[in-house]
Amino acid sequence: MQPVFDGHNDVLMRLWETAGRGGDPVTEFRDGIATGHIDGPRARAGGLAGGLCAIFVPSRQGPRPTFDGGSYASPLAEPIDQPAALAAAVAMAGIAHRLDREGAWRLCTSTAAIRQAMDDGVFAAVLHMEGCEPLDPDLLALDAFYAAGLRSLGPVWSRTNAFGHGVPFAYPSSPDTGPGLTEAGVRLVKACNRLGIMIDLSHINERGFWDVAKVSDMPLIATHSNVHAITPVTRNLTDRQLDAIRDTGGMVGLNYATSFLRPDGQDNATTPLTDMVRHVDHLVEHLGIDGVGLGSDYDGATIPAEIGDAAGQQALVGALRQAGYGEADLAKLCGDNWLRILAQVWRE
Rank of each mutant, 00 (worst) to 15 (best):
L261D: 07
A244Y: 12
G265H: 10
A222V: 02
Q266K: 14
G265V: 09
D290P: 03
A222I: 03
L254T: 01
R262C: 07
L273Q: 03
V280G: 02
D239Y: 02
D243E: 15
N236V: 08
T270W: 03
D299R: 01
V233R: 11
E285A: 15
S259C: 15
P232I: 01
T258W: 08
D275P: 02
R262F: 12
R235H: 12
D239W: 01
E285M: 13
G300L: 07
A229P: 06
V252H: 10
R278F: 01
H286F: 02
I303D: 06
N236R: 06
L283W: 11
P232R: 01
E285I: 01
H228M: 08
R235S: 10
T302Q: 13
M218P: 00
N268H: 12
V233W: 09
V284M: 03
L294Y: 04
L237A: 06
T274G: 07
A301Y: 10
T270Q: 14
L273C: 07
P232C: 04
N255F: 12
D267Q: 10
D290C: 05
T274M: 05
M251N: 05
I303R: 00
T274N: 08
G250R: 09
L273E: 04
H282V: 07
G293D: 13
H286P: 06
L294I: 15
L242I: 00
S259M: 14
V280P: 00
L242P: 08
Q241Y: 08
R240S: 15
D275A: 15
S225D: 12
D217R: 14
D267H: 10
V233I: 15
T302C: 14
M251E: 10
R240L: 09
D297A: 11
T238P: 12
L273W: 05
A269G: 11
G250E: 10
L242H: 07
Q266G: 08
V233C: 14
A269R: 14
D281A: 10
T270H: 14
V284K: 08
A269L: 09
R240P: 00
T270F: 06
T248E: 10
M251S: 13
G288L: 05
H279Y: 10
V227D: 03
N236W: 03
V252I: 02
L220P: 06
V292Q: 01
G249A: 09
S259W: 06
L242S: 06
I221W: 00
V233Y: 06
G295W: 02
D290A: 14
A301K: 05
T258A: 13
T231Y: 04
M251V: 09
T270I: 04
T234E: 08
I303L: 15
D290H: 11
G291Y: 13
V252Q: 12
D290F: 04
D264K: 09
N236M: 13
L237P: 05
I230A: 11
D243Y: 00
A222R: 06
R240K: 13
M276K: 01
I230L: 15
M218Q: 15
H286R: 15
V280Y: 01
I221K: 00
G291F: 03
V277C: 05
Y298D: 08
D281L: 01
T248C: 13
T223S: 15
L294W: 03
I245E: 07
I303E: 02
G288M: 09
A222W: 04
I221P: 01
T248I: 06
A301I: 04
R240C: 00
